[in-house]
Design a protein around this nucleic acid. Structure first.
Lengths: 150, 150
DNA sequence: CACGTATTAGTTGTGTGCGATTTAATCGTG
DNA sequence: CACGATTAAATCGCACACAACTAATACGTG
């Protein structure tokens, strides 16, 4: 920090004072960094996040997937259709509750997990934070998310 | 932090270990928080960011605006057309370099600044960070952005 | 068990984001 | 000054994101 820097942070309309812009820019920059890696897997970034959830817990409902990713069904439905068209998962109506759709990985969906294993390391490396900074950043981001949500 | 928490952070494929997801979720949550406030101004969130830049520096080129926001012309061109259609700015070809387009606020565009004045306080309030946390978060996010941008 | 309410996915419409390409204008080097 | 390289915007195609709405199913209470 330059010692003589003014502190107009509160209520300023200057772009560079705004935490919200730092957040928005960082999010897009990180996604851009993922893009070439995920291209090789045939995934977009949101599709990759869906696959993370499914590798963790197969046969999840669209509803629970949306809760995990904080995404609406209007976002997930077309995305899941693309993953199904690409042969990574199947969508099946639950027999016990036909309102619900279970997402089940195909063989190809499971196999992709091995190829994805390198991705988090590569990204973590690119971010270049110390473990302490990484933990701190996650804590702050979760605090912001929690405070801002309702 | 729970003291006994394992540290599988490096190389984990668990969604909740990933800084990238915390970032993505926080960015969307903050944007969602802005939405009702910006609705009253007739702006979307990216449009609001454009207006922040223009209030700071009028008569900027599309190129420099893109550099400030880290957005491509393919994103900005349609967005700027909407702002022009809503009467907030005009786009004029530069006389000294006809490749370039200068963005100039209209009277209405300037007037909107007063109504937008409350927005940063309201958002800062909702985020609920201490000034120290706010500064720290901005530093970490800028570090990530810089590291990740080749 | 009938019927109003709630829940779950999906559809539609609008607005980003970005890669690839296009068009027009300017620059640089011989 | 000629002409290939570069630059600035815009266009196109695709994939999110989300609000508003719809359709189908399940639930709960009288």
């Amino acid at each position: 920090m330059s010692p003589a820097a003014a502190e107009p942070s509160e209520g300023s309309l200057l772009l560079d004072d705004q935490l919200c812009f730092a957040l928005y820019a960082a999010s897009r920059a990180v996604t851009a960094r993922y893009r070439p890696l995920l291209d090789e897997l045939g995934l977009t970034y949101p599709q990759y996040l869906v696959m993370l959830v499914l590798w963790e817990q197969d046969s999840i409902s669209v509803r629970d997937l949306g809760a995990a990713l904080q995404l609406e069904s209007s976002t997930l439905s077309p995305l899941l259709k693309r993953l199904e068209a690409n042969g990574l998962l199947r969508r099946e109506r639950r027999v016990d509750d036909e309102r619900s759709v279970a997402l089940r990985l195909t063989e190809g969906g499971h196999r992709l997990r091995e190829r994805a294993g390198q991705v988090p390391l590569a990204i973590g490396d690119a971010m270049g934070l110390t473990p302490e900074q990484d933990t701190l950043a996650k804590q702050l981001l979760r605090l912001i998310t929690a405070n801002v949500t309702d």
